[in-house]
Design a binder for these strands. Structure first.
Lengths: 154, 154
DNA sequence: CCTGAAAAATTATTCGC
DNA sequence: GCGAATAATTTTTCAGG
């Protein structure tokens, strides 16, 4: 599950995370190898599932999707079957960028991205409230993105 | 700030978010245009800052970085100058994947990715506690990633 | 603004060493 | 892992609708 990566592999990954379209020629130059082994290393890391894909990153600002809300959700039923149902339903909501089951205090923490507050209310009303076994929620609105990580499916 | 995007632009973005390395030939086929306008649209969206870059996405599991903790932080000083200092300092911590200033309840919410709990304690001790103006913190440990979004710099 | 196609440049892959 | 040859892709350009 945890493959051994040498310093060169790490350097390659680091470069590709920063720029997925970096030409292999340039990548090889930066890591101090020729193109052949660099291409082979990338392919191997793709095939072992370490690199899961390559994505374009979009600007939430330019898309008018700057409104971020964190949503604590407590469930009325926390048995395995209810959790599985909740998980499946939450994965189907495209506005939910992240969702983690949390230990202590509340059950789930969701990150929701929307166009504005009105859009968030719509998402709450149409989608969040339709999730199974929801007992209570608390919304925390982000005022400023200090460190942001987001890709959007549109 | 919010450019008008037609359905074709949205389709292009959607495809590139799913796969940043999709050849333009195939992309053109999928959106029903020839290569020329598709390439021009991509370049335009890059230049207007709508597409901010292309990233390889890595598997937290394969990298042994599955431990996610959310950290509420309250500051002792919430004047503009203190906030700016905090923001700058938190941006320098690579383990902080996300950080939002929050309205109501607490001041900041940080998402921290680490190798395991011991690693998280190290990050807390060495980096979080060195942040300026921190008054109090609460950590919430993720037990399961239901919807995850993450890229790692290594 | 798009199509279709050709030419030029760049990039990726293959293979002998 | 190297380096050269080969294959594929992207970029640019342009005439025409």
């Amino acid at each position: 599950m945890e493959p051994a990566l040498d310093a060169t592999d790490r350097k390659i990954l680091s470069e590709l995370v920063a720029n997925a379209r970096l030409p292999i020629t340039e990548l090889a130059r930066r890591v101090g190898l020729s193109k052949t082994p660099v291409a082979a290393r990338i392919k191997a890391m793709e095939e072992m599932g370490l690199i899961t894909g390559y994505r374009a990153i979009l600007s939430p600002l330019k898309l008018g999707m700057t409104h971020v809300t964190y949503l604590e959700v407590r469930l009325s039923d926390t048995r395995e079957r209810a959790l599985a149902a909740f998980n499946a339903a939450v994965r189907a909501i495209e506005e939910v960028e992240e969702c983690y089951m949390i230990a202590g205090g509340f059950d789930y923490l969701l990150k929701v991205r929307s166009r504005d507050m009105a859009d968030y209310r719509r998402i709450m009303g149409e989608k969040i409230s339709a999730l199974p076994h929801v007992h209570a929620t608390s919304s925390y609105v982000a005022m400023e993105a200090v460190v942001e990580q987001s890709w959007m499916s549109l």
